[in-house]
């Protein structure tokens, strides 16, 4: 295995693992609050579920980029590509935006969603507003995904 391929692999690692950690933490935050709220009032589980699931998308975005990189490198066809160090760094830089944007945005989205669950517990009809607030944070993960996608799709030439 070349060092270039290793660096490229680190890029996949960054996008999948960092975004995944962010989502796990975010869902964890929201899930804990939901469990607490439901111990008082077991109703409205469906409403809370949406707020819990919301920070989960960053992990998916990271995974999407990771998969696209794998596809682009041709690993799925069974061949192990040999990359120069420069090419590896290129892949790394392409995959990084969603990793970092996903990590931070998912955690903060989890906080917003946790607060939203508390709000929905007191005002069940306002759950839509809580969701919209959560989506505000998500947009920055979307931007990270877009940049990563364009870099992976158009910026990697092997």
């Amino acid at each position: 295995m070349t060092i270039g391929l290793f660096i490229a692999g680190m890029g996949i690692f960054i996008s999948v693992v960092l975004a995944g950690i962010g989502s796990a933490v975010g869902i964890g935050l929201a899930g804990q609050v939901a469990a607490g709220v439901m111990s008082e009032d077991p109703k409205n589980f469906g409403k809370y579920l949406m707020l819990i699931a919301l920070p989960g998308t960053q992990g998916i975005y990271g995974f999407v980029i990771g998969f696209l990189v794998i596809m682009k490198l041709g690993i799925l066809t069974g061949t192990v590509p040999s990359l120069s160090i420069a090419q590896g760094l290129n892949v790394f830089a392409a995959a990084a935006p969603i990793g970092f944007a996903g990590l931070v945005s998912a955690i903060h989205q989890g906080k917003v969603c946790a607060a939203g669950i508390e709000m929905a517990a007191k005002q069940p009809s306002d759950v839509g507003k809580a969701l919209v607030m959560g989506v505000f944070v998500e947009f920055y993960a979307v931007l990270g995904l877009l940049i990563s996608f364009f870099l992976v799709w158009f910026g990697i030439n092997l």
Binding site: I60, Y61, F63, V64, F139, V142, L143
Partner: peptide
């Protein structure tokens, strides 16, 4: 520019569908 999210969501749905099949 905010509508670019539609593209991102379309893409992630499509790619995951592809992943499942692969």
């Amino acid at each position: 520019l905010s509508y670019s999210r539609l593209f991102a969501l379309a893409l992630s749905t499509g790619v995951i569908a592809l992943v499942i099949n692969v």
